[in-house]
């Protein structure tokens, strides 16, 4: 276990080491060793998910992930004489996520909501206990997780949901501002009310 005890961070980012937290954002970094068949299976899975976006709908709907990635590492390049090219005995799966709200809640969501998806991603990893029950799955992730030495977010106080809402709101505000200039104070009242009604989910 290489993640320190949950720190004393204040805010929703809870349940992980202080190195993994910047504001509301949490970093998760997980490596696992992949069985031989994973080197065929995982690229196929990645391609399928890339080509058929509806398959990642639930991942998108979970709404607390900014960015995530899965990468299969099979070899490392040479770096001069002292570090020759290394072909790894097994493929290794690297997973990272940038998310918000607590670590426990995040893994619970993976277990309960993306049960099948999590199994597809980690089925070929040694030691994967299954996405449910959550207890052993959390232990597995904990065991294979690394704490960041430095973690950075460009907008640490914003969550993924806030970002998406703001990105939808900003053009609506700009658009309404264009119109508002031309409206008389009497016309403005109705238009303002309609604008707020339309935009209320984004506020």
């Amino acid at each position: 276990m290489t993640v320190s005890e949950p720190g004393t961070a204040v805010g929703t980012a809870t349940g992980t080491g202080a190195g993994n937290i910047d504001g509301q954002a949490i970093a998760i970094t997980v490596f696992s060793t992949v069985k031989w068949w994973g080197k065929h299976w995982l690229p196929l899975l990645f391609t399928t998910l890339r080509l058929i976006p509806p398959l990642t709908r639930d991942l998108r709907k979970l709404s607390f992930i900014h960015f995530a990635r899965w990468t299969l590492i099979r070899e490392l390049p040479a770096n001069g004489d002292t570090a020759p090219r290394t072909r790894l005995r097994y493929p290794h799966l690297f997973f990272e996520s940038n998310f918000n709200d607590g670590w426990e809640e995040y893994i619970d969501a993976f277990s309960y909501v993306l049960t099948r998806g999590m199994s597809l991603f980690w089925a070929s990893s040694y030691g994967f206990p299954g996405a449910l029950p959550t207890g052993p799955f959390k232990d597995y992730i904990h065991r294979n997780e690394l704490e960041a030495a430095h973690y950075y977010s460009a907008y640490p106080e914003a969550t993924a949901t806030m970002v998406r809402k703001a990105l939808a709101l900003a053009p609506a505000v700009a658009d309404f501002a264009e119109r508002a200039v031309r409206l008389s104070p009497a016309e403005f009242e109705g238009a303002w009310s309609a604008f707020l009604t339309d935009a209320q989910d984004l506020l």
């Binding site: 805010g11 929703t12 809870t14 349940g15 509301q24 709404s63 607390f64 918000n100 709200d101 607590g102 426990e104 809640e105 106080e157 969550t159 949901t161 806030m162 809402k165 989910d201």
Partner: peptide, 22 residues
Amino acid sequence: SRQFESVQVQWLEDGNVFGLGH
């Protein structure tokens, strides 16, 4: 932590889970 604190911190102290920002 999972029951009381999670509700206190994620649901009452902050609104993000519900799309309510902070």
